[in-house]
Write a protein that binds this DNA or RNA. Structure first.
Length: 311
DNA sequence: GGTTATTGATACGGGCGCCA
DNA sequence: TGGCGCCCGTATCAATAACC
């Protein structure tokens, strides 16, 4: 076993087994105690946080928080990580957006010198467009606080901006879920001020503080876990060739052709009602809403309002 | 084959805990 | 409090392996 391999092995052994004497480590690695002393010395020189206990019942320990960078990534894996990092930046994942450059450089630093420019050329040509909403800045440490609150099941205290009333309110929240939806990040939880479930857009949280008190959810909110957006059924008449274009879109995930003639008559089950309306408005010659009637009426009203404005 | 690095064996000093 | 055992720290020397 090479010295560097043995040094790694000592770290792993101490991480796994806790405190051991040089004699015990030597026995495990089948080398002399003296060799272990030299390895321990070498580890100390490279700032591995070893704890030494001298005397009776002495030995060596390693700081339990010491992180072992044991994963050697291939260039392909690094590329994938940087793509994910870029997605994280474009999705404005709190923290990732802020630390993007430092993280990107760390990953680039892990690949060969000739691999780095190649990857940069690719990244220059890699673009992600998230155009649903464009969230503002997040308050500092929002991500860390949310992660901690969800991990430890502790309440948070928020200062939340409500644009409709142009007001700031302070409220205690028991966080339940952290989600990304239609271009924005949201914290869902039980609001103790409103005594109800609320969804908080992250960029409207103006301050956040982790509280010591445990989360509380009323019994009738236990169904939180199984909650899902209610899906509705829509019947659309769609041009056959246009169907081929849109059939893999999100809102088409749960669709079936119920009549196959000059046009397809398609039943779609989705919670993306806005997308159905937008689809019908943008493509009147290719898409016609048949059901529900409420959507047809809604479309008529939009068209009527538009025709009055743009006479 | 010479040089350098690594390893093993041995010895000694000193810290620490236990115990009479 | 001092002896004892256990262990870490350091030094030295010789043997061996790796490298040029």
């Amino acid at each position: 076993m090479k010295k560097i391999e043995r040094m790694n092995a000592i770290i792993y052994i101490l991480k796994e087994k806790g405190k051991l004497t040089a004699k015990e480590i030597a026995k495990l690695l089948d080398v002399s105690e003296r060799t272990i002393y030299r390895d321990i010395d070498a580890l100390s020189q490279i700032k591995v946080p070893l704890i030494t206990y001298e005397g009776h019942q002495g030995g060596y320990e390693i700081d339990p928080n010491y992180f072992i960078p044991s994963i050697k990534l291939t260039e392909a894996e690094i590329t994938n990580f940087i793509i994910l990092l870029t997605l994280g930046k474009e999705l404005k994942v709190p923290g990732v957006h802020r630390d993007y450059e430092a993280l990107r450089l760390k990953l680039l630093n892990a690949i060969t010198q000739d691999g780095s420019p190649k990857l940069n050329r690719f990244l220059d040509k890699f673009k992600v467009y998230i155009n649903r909403i464009n969230p503002g800045d997040y308050v500092e440490h929002i991500m860390e606080t949310i992660i901690k609150s969800l991990e430890e099941e502790k309440k948070v205290k928020l200062t939340y901006y409500t644009p409709l009333k142009d007001t700031l309110t302070e409220r205690e929240v028991s966080p339940y879920r952290f989600t990304f939806d239609e271009g924005g990040w949201y914290l869902i939880g039980y609001c103790h001020l409103r005594e109800d479930k609320r969804t908080f857009r992250l960029d409207r949280i103006k301050s956040i503080e982790l509280l010591h008190s445990n989360c509380y959810f009323p019994i009738d909110m236990v169904s939180f876990e199984n909650e899902s957006k209610s899906k509705s059924s829509y019947h659309l008449q769609i041009d056959r060739s246009f169907y081929e274009i849109i059939k893999h879109n999100d809102y088409m995930e749960d669709n079936k052709i119920i009549e196959d003639s000059e046009f397809f008559t398609v039943e779609i089950c989705t919670d993306y009602e806005d997308s159905i309306i937008e689809l019908a408005l943008k493509n009147p010659t290719s898409v016609k809403v048949l059901e529900p009637q409420s959507i047809c009426e809604h479309l008529k009203k939009i068209v009527k309002d538009l025709s009055q404005i743009y006479t």
